[in-house]
Structure formats: structure tokens, C-alpha cells
Simulated assay, not measured.
Amino acid sequence: MEKLISRKEAAKILGISIATLDAARNSGMISYVQYVQNGCVYFTDACLQEYIAKCTHRAKPMEKSTTYRKPRSARE
């Protein structure tokens, strides 16, 4: 059986607050283990890795032109 991680430890590992972790849990972004209804909530390492993968986005390439104007050409 995998080691269970408490809410406080999971928030520290992810670098987020406990409130943010609870919001992610309530919205279904992160899976969790809860043995008894209204009981303690635990996370596994696989759950945390899955959450990191969901929240990681590819960087978008920087746009070359930020305006609609065309760059000036060299004088000929």
C-alpha cells in the first residue's frame, strides 16, 4: 500500500495553500482517499503527480508582432 500524505503535507509538496488544495479537490482536479464520510482526507504520490500533470501547460511561443503595424523597411 502506498504511503498516504496528509492535506498539510500535500499542500507543502505542491507549493500551494491548503485552501487551494481543497478547492482543487472539491472541483475534481485532484483525486484523494477518504475512508469515512466527513473524515480525514489523504493523498497518494500518484494523485499528486497526476494533479501536476493536469496543471502543467505547454509554453506558447512569443508573438513576433504585438501591433498591427508592419515594421519599417530599410530606406532604399
Rank of each mutant, 00 (worst) to 15 (best):
T20Y: 01
G28A: 08
A10W: 00
M29G: 03
L14D: 06
K60C: 03
I16P: 01
I18P: 00
A46E: 13
A24V: 00
C47E: 14
L4N: 02
V36W: 04
M62V: 13
I18S: 02
S65M: 13
T67K: 14
S65K: 15
Y35E: 10
V36Y: 05
T20L: 02
S17E: 08
E50D: 15
E2Y: 05
N26D: 08
K64R: 14
A11S: 10
R58I: 03
G15H: 02
A53Q: 12
R7F: 01
E50M: 09
Y68I: 07
T67S: 15
K64Y: 13
S31H: 12
S6D: 07
Y51F: 15
Q49A: 09
V41C: 10
S73Q: 14
M62R: 15
L48M: 11
L14R: 10
K64A: 11
P61G: 04
R69P: 01
R25Y: 06
G28I: 07
D22L: 01
L14P: 02
D22T: 01
K3C: 03
Q37R: 08
R58M: 08
R7C: 10
C55V: 11
F43H: 03
E63F: 05
K12G: 10
S65I: 09
Y35S: 07
A46D: 12
P71F: 07
K3R: 13
R75M: 04
V33Q: 13
K12V: 03
A74M: 11
A11E: 09
L4T: 09
E9K: 11
P71Y: 05
A10F: 00
H57M: 04
A46P: 00
P71H: 06
C55W: 04
F43G: 01
D45W: 10
R58G: 04
E9D: 09
Q34T: 04
R7V: 14
S27G: 03
K12C: 06
G28Y: 04
A10K: 00
L4E: 10
G39C: 14
I18T: 04
S17N: 09
L14A: 08
A19K: 15
T44H: 12
A11F: 03
R69Y: 14
G39N: 14
R58D: 08
K12S: 12
T67N: 11
A19G: 10
S31F: 07
L48D: 07
R72Y: 02
K8V: 11
